[in-house]
C-alpha cells in the first residue's frame, strides 16, 4: 500500500518543525516570563500578552489555512487535502478556545470583568461557533465525498463572513460605549518585542506540527477503512476479484 506523497513529505519534515516549535516556545517563555520588563501600566499582568496574542494570531492563521485548503480541495478533490482541512479545523477550534480563555483571564485584572462585548472577543466567539458548527457538520454526513464538499463550502463562506462579523461588531460596540481599555492600548516596548515574536513564531510552528500530526492521523484512519473494505469485499466476492 503506497503512502500519499504529501504524507511522505510530512513524515520527513515533522521532526524539524516540532523541534523548532519546542525551541522557539521555550526561548519565548523564558524571555516572556523572566527576561522582559513588566509593563508600566499593567505591571506583571502584561505577560499574559505573550501567550494570548500568539494564540489568537495562530487561530486566525489556522482559519486562513482552512479556507485556503478548502478552496484547494474543491479544485483538486484530493482526499488528503480534505484530511488536512479537517485537521486544521479541530486545531484552530482549540487555538480559538484557548485564545478566548487567556483573553478572559487577561480581561479580569485589566477591565475587572471576565467578559466584555469587545469587538475582538465577540468575533472570536463567533469564529469559535463557526468552527464548532464545521466540526459538527462533519459528523452528520456519511458519504466522505459529500462531507468534504459541504465542509469546504462552510469554511469558505465563514472566511468571507468573518471580516464582516468583525467590522459590524466593532462598529456596534463603538456606538454603544466608549472604547474600553483595548488590548491594543499596550504600547510595545523594545524588551517586549522579542518574546512576542518568538512566541508567535513558536505557536505557528506548533500549529504546523499539530497539523502534520493530525493530518497523518486522519489519513491513516481513512487508509485503514479503505483497506478493511478491500479485504471485506474480497471476502464477500472471491470470484470477482481474480
Amino acid at each position: 500500500m503506497t503512502i500519499h506523497r504529501v504524507i511522505r513529505g510530512v513524515q520527513r519534515y515533522q521532526g524539524w518543525v516540532g523541534g523548532g516549535a519546542a525551541l522557539c516556545l521555550l526561548a519565548g517563555l523564558y524571555l516572556g516570563l523572566l527576561g522582559s520588563p513588566p509593563d508600566y501600566v499593567q505591571g506583571e499582568v502584561v505577560r499574559i500578552m505573550y501567550i494570548h496574542v500568539p494564540l489568537a494570531h495562530t487561530a486566525l492563521l489556522g482559519y486562513t489555512v482552512l479556507a485556503g485548503g478548502s478552496v484547494w480541495y474543491l479544485w483538486k478533490r484530493d482526499p488528503v487535502v480534505d484530511n488536512m482541512c479537517h485537521a486544521v479545523a479541530a486545531i484552530s477550534a482549540c487555538f480559538t478556545a484557548l485564545a478566548t480563555a487567556t483573553g478572559m483571564i487577561w480581561g479580569k485584572p485589566t477591565w475587572d470583568a471576565w467578559w466584555t462585548w469587545d469587538a475582538r472577543l465577540t468575533s472570536f466567539a463567533v469564529l469559535l461557533l463557526i468552527l464548532l458548527g464545521y466540526l459538527m457538520l462533519r459528523t452528520m454526513i456519511d458519504d466522505p465525498d459529500k462531507e468534504a464538499r459541504y465542509a469546504a463550502v462552510l469554511a469558505i463562506l465563514g472566511f468571507v463572513d468573518l471580516p464582516i462579523v468583525h467590522f459590524s461588531v466593532e462598529w456596534w460596540r463603538t456606538l454603544h460605549q466608549p472604547q474600553s481599555i483595548s488590548l491594543r492600548g499596550v504600547s510595545i516596548a523594545s524588551g517586549m518585542l522579542a518574546p512576542l515574536v518568538l512566541m508567535s513564531l513558536g505557536m505557528s510552528l506548533l500549529f504546523s506540527y499539530m497539523l502534520m500530526i493530525r493530518t497523518q492521523l486522519l489519513y491513516l484512519h481513512r487508509l485503514l477503512d479503505a483497506k478493511k473494505g478491500r479485504l471485506l469485499s474480497r471476502f464477500h466476492a472471491p470470484n470477482a476479484d481474480s
Binding site: D143, P144, D225, K228, G229, R230, L232, S233, A237, D241
Partner: peptide, 11 residues
Amino acid sequence: QSYGQYRVLRD
C-alpha cells in the same frame, strides 16, 4: 464507489 469501508462498486 466505496462508503467508508464498504465498496459498493468495484472497477
